[in-house]
Design a protein around this nucleic acid. Structure first.
Lengths: 192, 192
DNA sequence: AAAAACTCTTGATGTATGTTAATGAAATCA
DNA sequence: TGATTTCATTAACATACATCAAGAGTTTTT
């Protein structure tokens, strides 16, 4: 159950047997069925989730009822509503499972405890955040300067596996375009 | 010279006299004149900068020659090209001064040294990154779901001081709209 | 196995914002 | 102080993408 987690952690830091034990004691295994929520808008985030198996998404619903997918999280990825986690305010995001999934959950309290008992995790999460930040900057940039078609091409280039696993309108939602536009773009691309 | 820096650090962590000393030895004071570059696209990032005084911006120029401002950094803010800093690859971003500025620079090496000699800074930069990440998520969201007018209103709400200090087309560039559009939006807003 | 819900496609039409271009004012430079 | 660059405004026109609406497969539910 913990293989993917330790593999993920060891990509960034070195941990001891002892620290592995601490993780085993703090992370809570949890299964989620397709369409089941891990977090709903308005609730306060309780967990930071690591995905061992399956696929999750986080998304928001704006005032006009439009959905925007903030993140896809397949195996080996982390997901939570960072805003709610650090402020303790109700979450703006929803997180649910796109496929039946197996998670390892770290409570907000467990998160702090982990840092205390194994300070090397300060470093781990810092490095993790650096990468997330850079990825998000790139996404913002793409969103502003690219055309819808370029956004889609970048996406299938960057996440070919996700393309296979989610309905097309989810990709549109992630890219910030309508499903209709994406459909037309794909048609054009196929015609050439 | 270091007042703002320590004030900024102490908002997130507790540091000792000793750690203050380490900072004094690692941060390099530097003045930058208006329009002077701290980093140019293609060069590798050498520094992470803390702004003691003045105002900087980071921006990219895309293939079509369009400019996109990624960040404004007034007093008390940090700025660098995170991508280049963590990968060692040439920077995509430019960073320059909008006003004559006074900076405290931490070299990439100094950054690592700081973590070694004062590990509490792992925590500091982690917390820092958490906030940056949340702010960036909010910006991405706004960029996708808001109209140009809403984007502008949010901006003047969030950064009233920046509005006073930079030319209007810089704000347009930050928001991802054209200066002409912003001008029209302001006209409309004034008419009501 | 029928009903319901979801998913994708396609067409007609609308609109927010971009593009191009010209002008004048303000700031900076020499 | 005159010359030059930067900045903001405005108008006419263009366009990428959204919206609305209908239809046909698919998948899921009962």
């Amino acid at each position: 159950m913990f293989e993917k987690l330790f593999e993920n952690i060891r990509k960034k830091i070195v941990i001891t047997e002892r620290e592995e034990e601490i993780c085993r004691s703090l992370f809570i295994p949890k299964k989620l069925r397709k369409r089941q929520y891990l977090l709903q808008q308005g609730d306060v985030t309780k967990y930071t989730a690591f995905v061992e198996k399956g696929l999750l998404r986080s998304y928001i619903i704006d005032d006009k009822g439009a959905e925007l997918i903030m993140q896809f999280a397949p195996e080996g990825w982390w997901i939570n509503d960072m805003y709610s986690a650090i402020t303790g305010e109700p979450a703006e995001q929803n997180i649910d499972a796109i496929e039946d999934s197996e998670l390892l959950l770290l409570t907000t309290q467990g998160y702090e405890q982990l840092m205390q008992e194994a300070p090397v995790f300060e470093r781990f999460f810092r490095l993790q955040l650096q990468n997330s930040f850079v990825a998000l900057q790139r996404r913002l940039k793409g969103n502003i300067i690219l055309t819808a078609e370029e956004k889609y091409k970048n996406f299938i280039q960057a996440y070919p596996n996700i393309v296979q696993r989610v309905p097309q309108h989810n990709i549109a939602s992630f890219l910030g375009i309508t499903p209709e536009s994406l459909s037309r773009i794909r048609k054009q691309m196929a015609e050439r």
